[in-house]
Computed example of a mutant assay.
Amino acid sequence: MGELSIRSVLVTGANRGIGLGFVRQFLQMPKPPEWVFAACRDPKGQRAQELQNLASRHPNLVITQLDVNDPTSIKAAAARVEEQLGGSGLNLLINNAAILKMTTLDSETLEDMIQVYTTNTAGPLLLGQAFLPLLKKAAQGSPGSALSCSKAAIVNISSIGGSIKEVYLWELAQAVSYRCSKAALNMLTKGQSLGYREHGILCVALNPGWVQTDMGGPRSQITVEESVKAMLKVLSSLSEKDTGTFLSWDEKVIPW
């Protein structure tokens, strides 16, 4: 984790679960980022209490209002982050916010599909667009031409549930809209890697594992801390050859 050296990072869905875990780990780094932007829908609400407690102890933590379902909110957040950065770029964008609906093929609805896709797939697309100028600025301000997460990167938190080849645990949870949204997010990641490579931005889809969160449920296998520490280790090792790939927290490549 010591190899990941960044000046600024923004994490969506940062008020709980994996997002909050990322924020905690960034703040605990031997050399923490100068700015950690923790984005959530209601920064002053009860569900953001842990973030508020952290912010009271860490002046480099900025809680940022952001609704990934709202293009206006996304653009406003990008403007606030730009102002806070004061002329420098954003090194790392972690698209973590996601929702899961435990639907089946028979019970899936248009409303559910639209809601899940909006959060899990369209949100990361719009965030990539909105923060692209700041990511480009970070890349331009970093020495050398090689891609890395320390330079500029978009990390889309995906799921092995989005692997079309694996169809992981279908019998346990069909979760049709979630699986489809994550498969689409993987394709988005591939597209971003092709479109943003010329700007010096690395793009990767990352499976966090089956994590002990509200979404993960009672059968989950690893803690938030274990998952996030492992993912940060993966991110610290990524280079040019890894952009556009689908990787797991345990450093394995996941088939599309």
Rank of each mutant, 00 (worst) to 15 (best):
L126I: 10
T223G: 12
T64N: 02
N120Y: 09
T109L: 07
G200Q: 07
Q140F: 01
M29K: 12
M215V: 10
C149F: 01
L4S: 02
L169Q: 15
W210E: 04
Q115D: 13
A152E: 00
A122N: 10
T213I: 07
R57I: 04
S181E: 00
V116I: 15
Q212V: 01
L232Q: 00
W249P: 06
Q25Y: 03
S220H: 06
P30R: 13
G13V: 01
G244R: 00
K182I: 13
Q46V: 14
G45C: 02
S181L: 12
G216L: 07
K165E: 13
N53F: 04
N53G: 07
P43T: 10
A97N: 09
T104A: 02
D70E: 06
D70F: 07
A139L: 05
Q140K: 14
V234P: 04
A76K: 15
G123M: 09
Y178R: 05
Y178C: 09
F37N: 01
A130H: 06
Q192K: 13
V204H: 02
V81S: 02
L194F: 11
F131R: 07
E226M: 12
W170H: 14
L188W: 02
Q65F: 06
R47D: 15
A38Q: 11
A122F: 09
I94H: 05
V204T: 09
G209L: 08
I74G: 06
L188C: 05
V11I: 12
